[in-house]
């Protein structure tokens, strides 16, 4: 397995591509089936957000294999409009597109670590990591 991988998100179909890569890497890192589904779902949410709100960006995958810890780090990077109020978008049900508003709070629950860096007019980077138990 390549320890690193990236999927450019530009078209709607790229969302499917990103979650397939996510599942493949999760499987190879020996995550259980439920964690594979969690990771693939989280990636699907992040990829769709890029497609919907930033037009273009990337999902970067980084396999972490150290002596006592194995994990998958997912980074969603875009050069979109940025997020004005992080606490607002992290609320369940908050959506500016008529969606369910479950994406970001959901990703935070599905993954073990979660971080947002964003700047208005510059873009957003969301990093989420899951550890093999």
């Amino acid at each position: 397995m390549k320890p690193q991988s990236g999927v450019i998100i530009r078209k709607e179909w790229d969302i499917v591509g990103a979650r397939q890569v996510a599942r493949e890497m999760a499987r190879e890192l020996k995550f259980g089936v439920v964690d594979q589904a969690r990771i693939a779902t989280a990636v699907s949410e992040l990829a769709r957000n890029i497609y919907l709100y930033a037009n273009e960006g990337q999902i970067l995958f980084n396999a972490i294999q150290s002596v006592n810890k194995t994990g998958l780090c997912v980074k969603a990077v875009d050069t979109g409009p940025g997020i004005n109020d992080i606490s607002e978008v992290m609320q369940d049900g908050y959506s500016t597109s008529g969606g369910l508003g479950a994406g970001l709070p959901g990703v935070k629950r599905l993954m073990d670590e979660f971080d947002i860096k964003t700047e208005i007019g510059i873009g957003t980077t969301i990093t989420a990591t899951k550890w093999v138990r």
Partner: peptide, 14 residues
């Protein structure tokens, strides 16, 4: 609905 799918849906808050 697969067990893994049911679990992720609930964690998404759906």
């Amino acid at each position: 609905i697969q067990p893994a799918v049911a679990m992720t849906l609930i964690e998404l808050g759906i």
